[in-house]
Design a protein around this nucleic acid. Structure first.
Lengths: 135, 135
DNA sequence: TATTTGCATGCAAAATTTTGCATATATTAT
DNA sequence: ATAATATATGCAAAATTTTGCATGCAAATA
């Protein structure tokens, strides 16, 4: 049984909401470095936010080598109404900008797997420019 | 447009959730003294919680003499999904106990208006005992 | 006009949460 | 084995929120 107060607490934070938004909108499993680039936040901030969401049972993880993929627990029936509610309210500009950066970052995947780790923004932007020029 | 973070912040507090629960479950407009008795909390705690919920536009007020009736803004279309979500999660024991005490307190209304103000718990229980004996 | 009553609110202390750094862990590559 | 890389986390300072008291205000009543 879900305690609604703990559930709301886990969501009541801008970083954590931005993360949830990315999972809802993208439908993808995402690793920490991809979220870092989409959110433009340091690694420890992203990891800590993910830990809170995970301990609220909103996310779960799958490890692949050194990479950790987080995914939204969207099939838990107790969260159906929650996600439906969130979906209709996650419409701030911040969220949209995150989504755009995430889509760019996801272009760098290979076989739908993250192959770029934590790199300086400058290098990231260069890689993205290359990718988008090719297509 | 509703900012979801502010909305969640307003709800992320036990007292405020208990109040929202009472409005959702009872369907009534309620005044501060009635909420005090249902929640067993001091007047300033209840008033402050109500102020937060009001400034998040979840509640609004109607003044009648010295009494102030609060009511849930349940018809605002932007809150439809929120209330539907909340309804399905507001099932903790605390909430149920509040509902029971509220129902007793509401027995003391006359013409569906609050006529008892802020009274010591002892006196309240006596009044309720009388009412329930009669019926 | 003075008092009572229902409710609101300013303020400081206490409690909680967030932030940032440093460092730890685990897996891969050399 | 060593180094490098992706992620996690302990801890203290900073920021935010809650709590409790005291007091304020407005409407009703004496």
């Amino acid at each position: 049984m879900v305690n609604i107060l703990n559930l709301l607490k886990a969501l009541t934070d801008e970083t954590r909401l931005r993360i949830i938004n990315l999972f809802i909108k993208s439908g993808e499993n995402l690793c920490v470095c991809e979220l870092m680039d989409a959110l433009k936040l340091p690694q420890y901030t992203v990891s800590k936010a993910l830990a809170v969401l995970r301990s609220a049972n909103l996310l779960s993880t799958e490890k692949e080598g050194t990479w950790v993929y987080y995914k939204l627990n969207k099939n838990k029936p107790e969260y159906k109404k929650l996600f439906s509610f969130l979906k209709s309210y996650l419409n701030l500009d911040v969220f949209l900008e995150d989504e755009i950066r995430l889509n760019e970052r996801l272009l760098l995947r290979e076989n739908n797997k993250c192959v770029i780790g934590i790199i300086p923004e400058k290098n990231l932007l260069k890689l993205i420019k290359q990718k988008t020029k090719v297509s």
